[in-house]
């Protein structure tokens, strides 16, 4: 009984904490981008103000849109993004962890993209159609290197003879940097470069941000959303930042100081900041958008090549 209440409190904490953390990190990302581009950026709490403004406004639905898909998709996107966080070990064991949750988490990452695609396609607008098709190609692209990158730690844990190799708890407790030899460390470093690119692709930030290309197609997949729906989509974007960064922290950067909970959590936030700074802010500021015709080639060619080379080096 006490366990149940504890889990319930933890779940509430994660819901509120992930949304606020995501929005704060988005604010930090915006102000750092602005400073790198020699501007004065918005205040750090700007995303909170945006969400509050959007919640007050009215949601407009297009005439021939299919209403139930259009309104359902932001809800599903937000829910599944938060659900992913329950399976990832943050400072200890994950809340809902089981024995096979790495594959489950990889599949759950498809859901936010899928629901945005369906919502955009159901809104019967040309801009949304183009944005949705580009988002589908984006998703097709990054899943291949994501699968390769996620299965590298699994292979290392398997080779060292542990059981329950697909469980995130197992990979988190056995530090993978201690399971490789020297060539493997080079492989893991190459893998990390590929991971930063994958995170940028998953979150649809530059150079992979075709689906919400603001200047080209007027907002793309999110074009017809307004008001409360758009607020929920922004929230799900924020939670997705936290989710995918936490996944890769649990897989590839699992070091921590075995002290009390607060310090472990602070170190976790420090690692989050490090990953978000490199993969979001840095890559976003220095690159421009890829063309759609080259996107699949880049994902399945260059990024997968990096990931595969990393895997092969780890194999030996």
């Amino acid at each position: 009984m006490f366990n149940l209440i504890l889990k319930f409190i933890l779940i509430m904490l994660i819901i509120i904490g992930s949304i606020s953390l995501g929005l704060i990190f988005e604010g930090i990302d915006r102000i750092l981008t602005a400073k790198m581009q020699k501007r004065v950026g918005p205040p750090i709490l700007q995303p909170f103000y945006d969400i509050r403004k959007l919640m007050i406004k009215e949601s407009i639905i297009p005439k021939y849109a299919i209403k139930w898909i259009f309104e359902l998709s932001p809800i599903i996107s937000l829910t599944v993004s938060i659900l992913i966080l329950f399976y990832i070990p943050i400072v200890g064991k994950s809340i809902l962890g089981g024995s096979n949750d790495l594959i489950l988490v990889v599949y759950l990452f498809i859901f936010p993209g899928l629901s945005i695609v369906l919502g955009a396609l159901s809104s019967n607008s040309t801009y949304s159609n183009i944005g949705a098709q580009r988002l589908v190609i984006n998703m097709l692209g990054y899943e291949f290197p994501l699968a390769i990158a996620c299965f590298v730690p699994v292979w290392l844990v398997y080779k060292s003879g542990f059981s329950n190799i697909f469980s995130l708890n197992t990979i988190y407790t056995h530090n993978i940097w201690g399971l490789v030899n020297q060539i493997g460390i080079i492989g893991l470093l190459i893998e990390i470069i590929a991971i930063f690119l994958i995170i940028a692709g998953e979150l649809s930030k530059s150079p992979f941000d075709l689906d919400t290309a603001d200047s080209e197609i007027a907002g793309g997949a999110l074009a017809e959303y307004s008001g409360r729906n758009l607020a929920m989509l922004n929230l799900s974007e924020a939670v997705k930042i936290i989710a995918i960064s936490s996944l890769f922290i649990a897989l590839f950067f699992p070091w921590n100081i075995q002290s009390n909970l607060i310090i472990m959590f602070l170190i976790y936030i420090l690692k989050l900041f490090f990953i978000i700074f490199i993969s979001l802010t840095l890559i976003k500021t220095v690159t421009s958008r890829f063309k759609i015709s080259k996107l699949t080639g880049i994902y399945w060619g260059y990024v997968s090549l990096l990931a595969t080379i990393g895997f092969l080096l780890v194999l030996f």
Partner: peptide
């Protein structure tokens, strides 16, 4: 993932739109 892409294409062309 590829199966998902195929089925979304069918769904979008046949079910969605005016």
């Amino acid at each position: 993932i590829l199966t998902l892409a195929v089925l979304i294409k069918i769904f979008a062309l046949i079910f969605l739109g005016a």
